[in-house]
Amino acid sequence: MMRRLLWPSVVLALVIAYPLLFSTPFQQRLGALVLLYAIAASAWNIVGGYAGQVSVGHVVFFGCGAYAAMAAYAHFALSPLVGIPAGIVFAVAIAALVGGPTLRLSGHYFSMATIAIAELARLIVTNTEYLGASPGLSGPAVPRNLFDLSFVSALPYYYLFLLVLAITLLITWRMTNSRMGFYLRAIRDSERAARSLGAPAARTKLYAYMLSAGLTSVAGALYAMMFGFIDPESGLGILISVKMLIMAALGGAGLLFGPLVGAAILVPLEELSNSWLGGQGAGLTFVVYGAIIVLISRFQPGGLLALAHRLWERHRKVPEAAAAEAGHAS
């Protein structure tokens, strides 16, 4: 028991101590960004990983949160924090509305429908004056008080995001161990089989979609607060959906810590490639994204965590067998 908990607690301690170990402003910010994207990717993971419904339009929910936070400031001079619950309500409502018809679609057709909806949302917002249209909405240029959640240092963001990520993962973990989690995995493996065994497939998928939407919108609101600006491209652009998907897939879709591992690799890669190459590596990020999609889908559909798990099992089998023999001998 003790040994089983050793490694997870070391990792947890490292995650908590990260901003103190890597304390330059840029490193701290990088850490905060990893956690932020991990929240979004973990939220995507609920419907994309566990339920196997690959949504490429999750940015709609991200945008709900981001726009709600900025609108709370821009139109009502309130703290962007107030926008979080409003964003969740919008996101869940949209998910319920959209999920009904689209979740009946299977495989690629579902993915395509979600892309269409995301693009639709982007175009509508681009032409909606209230939401800032194309110029976008900005948050407080200079923070008025603590509740604007606008800090120079990334340290407060880091721990705030860590807390939200912990809650997200806790919810996900509870879900996987509940009846709903078993239904979802059954649906992912074979929807027809799950249905014939009496699993309420449509309802379960819809609940997962709504849960995922609400959590994604929180990530969007946190993003908007940190950067203090949102426009149709940065709040509803398809690239954000793709990022969530790739981070989860790289780490391991359908695994609790998969999205975190994916974010911890991709976010630093994206930001650091910019500085290593001194602006020479124009567009390298997108090349890397493309390569990762190809490599994962060809060689390791389970993601890096699944690969690590397999290697670990192989490595453990030998000593375990020896230990078992020793046990027999005594």
Binding site: F227, S234, E270
Partner: peptide, 10 residues
């Protein structure tokens, strides 16, 4: 806008 801000900080 996010990358622009991160890179300015860097």
């Amino acid at each position: 806008p996010a990358t622009g801000q991160n890179q300015t900080l860097r």
